[in-house]
Structures are given as structure tokens and as C-alpha cells.
Simulated assay, not measured.
Amino acid sequence: MDFRTPVTITEPSFRIEPLEQILFVGSCFADNIGQRFVENKFRATVNPYGVMYNPVSILHTVMRTSDTFPVAFFTLGTNHVYRLKETGEIVDNCEKRPHHLFQEETLTVSQCADYLRQAIALLQSRSADVEVVLTVSPIRYRKYGYHGSQLSKATLLLAADEVAKMPNVHYFPAYEIVNDELRDYRFYAADMLHPSEQAVDYIWERLCETYLSDRARQFLSEWQPVKQALGHKPFAPESEAYRTFMNKTMLKVEELRKKYGNFAL
């Protein structure tokens, strides 16, 4: 008997190589996944101007980022935006200013899709072969009410589905994995809204299976014991045994650098 419904992920037309340069922009879920790439020595840039929850803010980050990336992940959190009444500008962060200064609006499916297309077009103007992966954050928004949160996610899902029809644009079903495959409150943090560390780890595993090349997965398997060794906190850091241990660890680091390319510790 099968007691869960595994989500089928479409086979991508590209693979991420070891130490690849990757851009992550979006909700705090983008932070969670992006940080795992950072910890595993991919050259990941994660929300360089702060967490961006909606498609407009994602576009703003891309506009401010001049670097080129072979791969970019956009994680959509909400279709709600805040417009500063004084200027009419949609802001990325209210910066704790009084609520009455802003007008809250909800973007339509077509508006969300249009802002995403603009962000992708800008990335493509810098690097024509960039691969863009869209995800929808599984984090729910209690302040909208749970029905309102679902409406927001539905808008984003429809927009992502439309934009993923573009060449070199892909959809990764993080939202579906949490809601349809894991589907249990034990996979949520204490607030019952954010995915637990275990759930994020599982999504990370599914993402690696989907997008990492064989060589990148091999790098991860070789890097993990070295990473654990580097994170080890010794009882006697001045001891000869610990110095020997660290010397051996650094030799393994140099071996990885020779095999896969240089990376900083």
C-alpha cells in the first residue's frame, strides 16, 4: 500500500554544475533553499536586496542586479503589493512606516505574469541562455485569512504556469510537494505556517535530484564529510590531534578544489 502521493516533476532540459553561479530571488523560502546552495559552495546570490514576496519586487531586484547568471530561481510568495500613496510606487518593503501611507492591492494573473516576463527578459538581455526556474512558496499567509491565502497562491500558480511556457523557463513544484506529498502538520514549524526544517530538507533533495548534474551530485557527496569536519567544534583546539585532523581536512579541501574548481571556505 502507498500512503502518500508523490509529486511528479517534469524532467528539465538543463543541469546545474558544481559551484555554478545561481541567482535566488523571492520569498523567505528562496532564502532557505538558496542558503543550502551557499553552504554547498555553489556561487549563489540570495536575495541581494532583501526578501521579495511578489512579482513586482522580484523585477525590482533583477533591475538592480547587473551580474549575469546561467541559472535563476524566482520564488513567488504573494500577489499582494503595497503602493506608496505619495508617489504611486509599488514598494518592496514598507520599512515599518505607518500603514495609512500605503494602499494594498492584489495583482491579477496577467499582471503577475507580465512582471515575471519583464524580469526574465532582463536576465536574457544579459545572458541569452539563462535558465529560469519558477516556484511558489508553500508558506501560507494567515493575515489574509486562509481562503484569501489560497486565492493568492492560486493566482501565482496560474501566472507561473503561463510564464513557464516560455523557452528556458521551468516550474518546480515546491508548493505541491508540501501540500500534496507531505500533507501533514508534522512537516510544519511551530507556527503551523512555515515548512519545517525536515520539509525544506526534503524539497532540497527533490530539487537536487531534478536539477543537479551527475558531477554536481558527486561533488555534494564528496563535500558533505569535509563540510562536517570543518564544522566540528573540538574540545581541545590546541591539541596535536586536532591539528592533525584539520591538516587532513584541508588536504581534502585542496583535492576538491583541484577536481571541481576553486571555492572559498
Rank of each mutant, 00 (worst) to 15 (best):
M192Y: 12
Q111N: 03
T10G: 08
N47K: 03
A241K: 11
S213C: 01
D31H: 03
Y144N: 11
E17A: 09
Y260E: 00
N32A: 15
G261T: 07
L122H: 11
H170C: 08
F73M: 10
L122T: 14
H80S: 14
R97Y: 01
I22E: 04
V62S: 10
I203S: 12
V133E: 02
G34K: 12
A216G: 11
L230P: 14
H60N: 15
R83V: 14
R83E: 12
L251Q: 13
F102L: 00
F14M: 06
Y211L: 08
R43I: 05
D191G: 01
N54W: 00
G148V: 03
H147D: 08
R257W: 03
C28N: 15
D2M: 08
Y211R: 08
E209K: 11
H60W: 14
S57I: 10
V91Y: 03
E20I: 11
T155K: 07
E181R: 03
N40Y: 09
F187A: 12
E240T: 15
A229S: 14
F42M: 15
K143L: 07
V51S: 13
Y242T: 04
A189V: 05
K233V: 15
A160T: 02
V163S: 09
M246C: 08
H147V: 15
D31I: 10
E89D: 09
S213D: 05
R142H: 14
K143D: 11
T106Y: 00
P12D: 01
P6N: 11
S152L: 10
K143I: 09
E176H: 06
R126M: 05
T45C: 02
P48A: 01
K258C: 08
L251Y: 10
Y115C: 01
C208S: 15
L76E: 04
L134R: 01
D184C: 12
A154C: 11
Y171R: 12
K96A: 13
I203Q: 09
F14W: 06
I33N: 05
A229F: 06
D161P: 02
M52E: 13
I120L: 09
A121C: 02
P98H: 00
S152I: 07
R117Q: 14
T106Q: 02
G88P: 03
D180C: 07
K153L: 08
L84I: 00
E255L: 05
S196A: 10
S137E: 01
Y211V: 04
V132D: 00
T8R: 12
A174Y: 07
K258H: 03
I9V: 15
H194N: 13
S13M: 00
T45G: 00
K153F: 08
V38R: 13
H232V: 09
P173W: 01
F74N: 06
C28A: 09
R83P: 03
G88H: 02
L107A: 07
G231W: 00
T61I: 05
V133Y: 00
A189D: 06
L220M: 13
Y53L: 14
Q103L: 06
R15V: 13
H147W: 05
P55G: 09
F219H: 04
R186I: 06
T106P: 01
H147S: 15
T210L: 05
N40T: 15
V51G: 11
I139E: 10
E86P: 07
I58R: 13
G148C: 05
L265I: 10
R142K: 14
E86W: 00
F172P: 05
L122V: 12
N93A: 05
P70Q: 11
N54A: 04
Y185C: 07
P48V: 06
E205K: 13
A121D: 07
